[in-house]
């Protein structure tokens, strides 16, 4: 079973496949151009001490982005990873 959640609610060590990017304008362009496009798989590595930004692995390399940006990214995750959604 899989379901789609915003990237903001993903937790450390959870992985998934990007399903949709909702952002438009410069925000949407920036997110996509860094390689966060539908079909890409991501692994959440962790978060900064104040829970924001997020540290994520994409194509074997590491990116950070803020929760605000992660809101625009919908990710298909496996239910078996037992994400604790906030």
């Amino acid at each position: 079973m899989s379901r789609t959640i915003p990237m903001r609610s993903m937790v450390a060590n959870q992985s998934g496949t990007i399903n949709q990017i909702k952002g438009s304008g410069i925000m949407g362009v920036r997110i996509r151009e860094m390689g966060l496009v539908p079909g890409a798989t991501i692994d959440i590595l962790g978060r900064a001490p104040l829970n924001d930004p997020i540290h994520v692995k994409l194509y074997g390399n590491n990116l950070t982005l803020r929760n605000n940006e992660a809101d625009h990214i919908l990710v298909e995750v496996d239910d078996l990873t037992k994400a604790t959604e906030r």
Partner: peptide
């Protein structure tokens, strides 16, 4: 507005 913050963490 704050600019988008998508930063690479190089090895």
């Amino acid at each position: 507005p704050p600019t988008p913050f998508i930063l690479e963490l190089p090895p």
